[in-house]
Each structure stands twice: as structure tokens, then as C-alpha cells.
């Protein structure tokens, strides 16, 4: 059976990542609208059997797995070879992946080779009723506009979807589906880029994965004041992000930076502390579900975006807030 809606499930160290289940949420809706099956694609080595079954439990009708040593870590060439094999074999109508460092590398590479259109970093996906085309909505020009894009004449219609822009699909009782293992010729799994080593971020910062982010700006005044921010983040189980000024001053490392020249995030809750909310900062966080700001300047631009804001000195407000949250 060919056609259908497909998602690329991402794994890390053999375990499926949350974004895979968010993509299922998107896929379930689209497959229902198109009355077609939903497929999931997995590349990796020794991916846990439970996780493959979880894709079915959460909405996939079939799961296609390539399991091989060279697929343990993402490399564009072998991953693309496998993806192109799936495209050739199943001729997906729609193929979506996370707008992650993996998805945003693999998908454009594959889209060229597959002669397919690709829309990056979508926050909305829908089917156009008359034509059955995929409508892909995404922020552009630093979030100043929302553009809706379609791919009328090329298949698959490919899109990357911003992580956290939808909740993960829940398990449903009694679902069944097919797990299909495919092999790839060894020579097509070679890569001209090799991963020699990996260094994990020290304080486990993974902004992309965080539900709650506490972002700190220049209002914190010096690196020595950062423990205050970490204390709040810890109380909330949040990751710590930063404005560019904080990173450029060396108070926090680059992986913390949010904005135009840093990361783009869409957490459930974004707490901006001593951040003015410049257009370049906002470009990286305005799709957060809920935004809260603490700033002593009532005119600070960040308040225009915030659901709730406190006008006050962060050195008074944050300690009082931590105490309230802890009790």
C-alpha cells in the first residue's frame, strides 16, 4: 500500500524522543482528514522494541525501522539513503519531521534528492478541503508574519514541525499495527562525515526539550547573581535560557542563548527575567504558549508579549517568588 502520511521518529541512544510523539499528534489529524494510514520511520541501532510498539500504541498504523550500526547517530548521508528508500517504496503523500538540528538538516537534503517541496519550522498543518493539499503555516521574517505555504504539484509534501508546538500523542488502548524491518545495502550507509566524540552540555541544558524555561537578561547585572535564577529554575524543574547580551558577556554559554542568532524555543511557559524583549530576542520565543515577565521598566517591550508581568526589581521579586513557589 502506498501513499499516506508519514512521520520521522527521532531516537537518541536507542530511545525515542518526545518530538516523535508530538509528530504523531500532527500525523493522526492529517491521516484522519485524508482517510489514509499513518506511518512512522525510525533510523537507529538497537532501538528499544517497547518504543517501536509505543509508536503504534500512540497512533501509527505501521512503523518502518532501519536498524544498523552506522545509523546509531545521525549522519545526513546514510539517513538520507534510508529516507529515500522509504519514499521510493511507499510514496508518501505527506512526510513530516521535527524542526530539530536533525530534521532541519536531513529534510532539506532529502527534499532536493526527492524533487519535493519542503516547508521549515511549521507551527500549523492542515489539509485544504477542495484540493487535499497540505497547508503549512509558519512564522517568517522574525515572526513578523505568518505565511501559509503549499506544495501543489510535488510529492511527498515535506515539512518540519517546531518541537513543543503540539502535545505528544497519548497511548490508546487496543491499537494494532505493523512493524516492518528494512535493510539497507552497507555501501549506502557510508558517510563522509564521522562523529568522533560527544560532549554533553554541562548543566543538562536542553532548551528544545524543556516545558518551562527561565530566561535571564542583562538585568541580572553579573554572573555572580545567576544562582538566584538557577534556584527559581530548579524549583520549577525549568531549563535556564539567556538573552544574547548575557552570553556575549560570558555569563552563560552559547547553548543557553535564545533568539535570532541563538535557539528558537516553544515551551509551555517562558519566564523572562531582566530581559527587555528586543525583536531579536522575541524571534526565538514568541511561540511559547504562556509568557511571564519580570522587569523594572514598565515600558519594556517584553510586557507586550506577556500574559502576566511584574514591574519590579528582580532582586526583590525573584526571591519572594521562589519562596511562594516552594510553599
Amino acid at each position: 500500500m502506498t501513499g499516506g502520511v508519514w512521520i520521522l521518529a527521532e531516537q537518541l541512544a536507542g530511545r525515542l524522543q518526545r518530538v516523535s510523539f508530538e509528530l504523531l499528534t500532527r500525523g493522526i489529524k492529517l491521516a484522519r482528514q485524508r482517510a489514509c494510514p499513518l506511518g512512522a520511520i525510525v533510523f537507529g541501532q538497537g532501538v528499544a522494541a517497547n518504543d517501536l510498539q509505543a509508536l503504534i500504541d500512540c497512533g501509527a498504523d505501521r512503523v518502518v525501522v532501519f536498524d544498523a550500526g552506522p545509523l546509531e547517530h545521525f549522519q545526513v548521508e546514510p539517513y538520507a539513503a534510508c529516507m529515500l528508500e522509504v519514499i521510493e517504496r511507499y510514496q508518501p503523500e505527506i512526510l513530516i519531521a521535527g524542526a530539530t538540528t536533525l530534521g532541519r538538516t536531513l529534510m532539506p537534503y532529502v527534499a532536493i534528492k526527492a524533487n519535493a517541496g519542503l516547508t521549515a519550522d511549521c507551527t500549523g498543518l492542515d489539509i485544504e478541503p477542495q484540493t487535499n493539499n497540505l497547508l503549512q503555516t509558519r512564522p517568517a521574517i522574525g515572526g513578523n508574519i505568518m505565511a501559509t505555504i503549499k506544495t501543489p504539484n510535488h510529492r511527498p509534501q515535506m515539512a518540519t514541525v517546531r518541537p513543543h508546538s503540539t502535545p505528544p500523542a497519548p497511548r490508546q488502548a487496543g491499537r494494532t499495527g505493523e512493524i516492518i524491518k528494512l535493510d539497507m545495502a552497507f555501501e549506502r550507509l557510508t558517510s563522509r562525515v564521522q562523529r568522533e566524540a560527544f560532549e554533553a552540555n554541562p548543566d543538562k541544558i536542553n532548551l528544545a526539550d524543556a516545558d518551562v524555561i527561565v530566561a535571564v537578561g542583562r538585568g541580572i547585572k553579573k554572573a555572580q547573581n545567576l544562582p538566584l535564577i538557577y534556584e527559581l529554575a530548579e524549583a520549577l524543574g525549568a531549563a535556564v535560557g539567556a538573552s544574547r547580551d548575557v552570553v556575549d558577556r560570558g555569563w552563560l554559554s552559547y547553548p543557553h542563548q535564545i533568539g535570532l542568532s541563538g535557539q528558537t524555543v516553544s515551551p509551555q511557559l517562558y519566564i523572562a527575567i531582566g530581559v527587555s524583549g528586543t525583536i531579536q530576542h522575541i524571534a526565538g520565543m514568541q511561540t511559547a504558549k504562556t509568557i511571564v515577565a519580570i522587569n523594572r521598566d514598565p515600558e519594556a517591550n517584553i510586557f507586550k508579549l506577556a500574559d502576566m508581568g511584574i514591574v519590579g526589581d528582580l532582586f526583590e521579586v525573584v526571591p519572594a517568588l521562589i519562596e511562594k513557589i516552594k510553599t
Binding site: P139, G143, N144, I145, M146, A147, T148, I291, P298, F303, K304, L305, A306, D307, M308, G309, I310, V311, G312, D313, E316, V317
Partner: peptide, 15 residues
């Protein structure tokens, strides 16, 4: 192309 509507209603509290 549309301009995103800012639907947030800001509650601002002053200390």
C-alpha cells in the same frame, strides 16, 4: 500571509 494577532491579555502588577 497574515500578521499574527497578539491575543495575549497582559495582566501587569506593579511592585
Amino acid at each position: 500571509i497574515v500578521k499574527p494577532k497578539i491575543t495575549r491579555k497582559t495582566t501587569l502588577l506593579t511592585v
